[in-house]
Amino acid sequence: MVTGPHPLNRPIWNALKLSQRQHAITRGQAVRFDPAFGQFAAIPDTTPDSLAALGELVREHGDVILFEPADLPAVPGAELVQRAPIVQMIAEQQIAPGKSLFDVEPLTDADGDEMLALATLTRPGPFFSRTHELGDFVGVREGGVLIAMAGERMRCGPFTEVSGVCTLPEHRGKGLAGHLTRHVTGAIQARGETPFLHAWASNTGAIGLYESLGYVRRAELTVSLLAPA
């Protein structure tokens, strides 16, 4: 049972200060993932010192993305490129494994270049050269080609994020995304952890898919993308 502020209210902060702090770069009160792993950053509050530290991280290491319960104030030395709402969803009830429709295989470091190429083409969300090292990833191949994948990204104590769900355009509509999401969700739950994920609030198709798998809406957060001014 969660007591106090829920860890998923501020998932990036809690990931970087707890479960994934080994991947963090810190300046003052601001923290971000090493750019090889991701753009996600966070601050504990919106005091001038915290905002200034965040601006320093942006200037030193490039663009950052924040998930916050409310709009972010202006950050010194940084420019707001995008702001949009996202829906955070969680699977608190056990999700039964689906019918085995595809041959799902684990993906490893040896598949890193293919994973990055697939994510770059399909844009499931920020994905960089070492993002696949943040958790377990699985995929489906056809003719030796990686056509779909899904995996894990942020970890906040007992909560693990499902992410990187993507399919080559010519293979969409076959149920790959749902099958792989169910597979990753089941693996997380088998470890005694609780899966969660994020979707753009405007992406009703993805939200509907996740709801059909057993995910429920938990919160709405604001995404802010900052770049050096």
Rank of each mutant, 00 (worst) to 15 (best):
G205Q: 09
R10Q: 10
V162I: 12
S212R: 15
A91W: 05
H179E: 06
L57M: 08
E92F: 00
A52V: 11
K17D: 12
T222A: 09
I25M: 14
A190M: 00
P7Y: 03
L66N: 03
P158C: 05
R155Y: 00
G151I: 04
G125D: 14
L57Q: 05
F196P: 01
R217H: 10
E68R: 12
G77K: 07
M154F: 08
G178D: 06
N9E: 14
R141M: 06
E161D: 03
K99V: 15
Q29V: 03
E114W: 05
D109K: 12
N203E: 09
E56T: 14
P124S: 07
A30K: 09
R21L: 07
P48E: 12
D113P: 00
L57N: 06
R59K: 11
P73Y: 09
R59D: 12
F128I: 03
Q22A: 14
G208K: 02
T204W: 00
R59Q: 14
T46V: 08
P69M: 06
D63P: 04
L116T: 12
D136I: 07
I12P: 00
G214L: 10
H198Y: 07
A190S: 10
A150K: 00
S129L: 11
L176G: 02
L176R: 01
P48H: 12
P169K: 10
L209R: 07
K174L: 14
M149W: 02
P69D: 09
H183P: 00
L66R: 06
V87C: 11
A110V: 09
S163G: 08
L57T: 04
P169E: 07
K17N: 15
P35Y: 09
T3D: 15
V87N: 06
P69R: 01
L18T: 13
P228T: 01
F196R: 05
D63E: 15
H23T: 11
G205W: 00
F159M: 03
I207L: 09
T167P: 01
L176P: 01
G164N: 01
E68H: 13
E79N: 04
